[in-house]
Amino acid sequence: MRSVLNKILTAMRGGVNELGEAVVDSQGNRILEQELRDSEHELKQAKQELAALMAESASLARQIRSEQDSASKREQDARKAIAAGQEDLAREVAERIVGHERRVADLAQTRELLQQRIAGLKERVQRAEKQLADYRRELQVVKTNERVLRTTAQIDTNINSQKSSLSTARETLERIRERQAREEDRQTASATLEKELTGADLDEKLKAAGIDSEQDAVNSVLARLKDSPAQ
């Protein structure tokens, strides 16, 4: 991942990224995609192999159990033969028991080796899965970068072809200020209109001219009270 990010930064600083030119060249991109496919393939194979080995191990375990069962059954037979004084028969059964026990030992050894291979393979699967996730992340960065470059190149071409050319930040700021001023004017106008509608503006004008109806009313009440003093 670090190498991909470094490649992108180096190319950017070098000014390679003119008009959608791919920063990590398409060859590098193809290599990354090939690595991704290889990893996916390896993972699939390893998983199939793992499944086969686990099935084999389970089958071996079954065979071992069956041999052990046979051996213990034969042991009972041998005891019975000894009890009945049939020494020769007991020896024959004992030979069978030895055969079962040898097969158990052989099968157990094979299974032990198999378990080791399974453990190794499980580790390989985990490694492949992690590597796959890494490649996918890298590829995503590379592809997003290319997409952004192509997209901005397309926007630039389009705007230039409309002959309106990409407006400068100063022009944009000017337009923003004009709109904001217009909005402010509208707000002031609607506040004025509201005052007119409610008559608030007339009250203000009368007050400014020293004509305050509220004050007049208070004064007239005071005058009335003074005319009829408390008894």
């Binding site: 997003t144 997409r147 952004v148 192509r150 397309q154 926007i155 071409t157 389009n158 337009r175 709109r179």
Partner: peptide, 30 residues
């Protein structure tokens, strides 16, 4: 926006001066 990539120019009312360019990829909407 005409071209190979699917790009939209979106103008938001009340903020017309700063058009937003939108592109959709497999992994994100930018």
């Amino acid at each position: 926006i005409v071209g190979e990539e699917p790009v939209l120019q979106v103008t938001v009312s009340g903020a017309e001066e700063t058009p937003v360019y939108v592109t959709v990829t497999d992994t994100q909407i930018l």
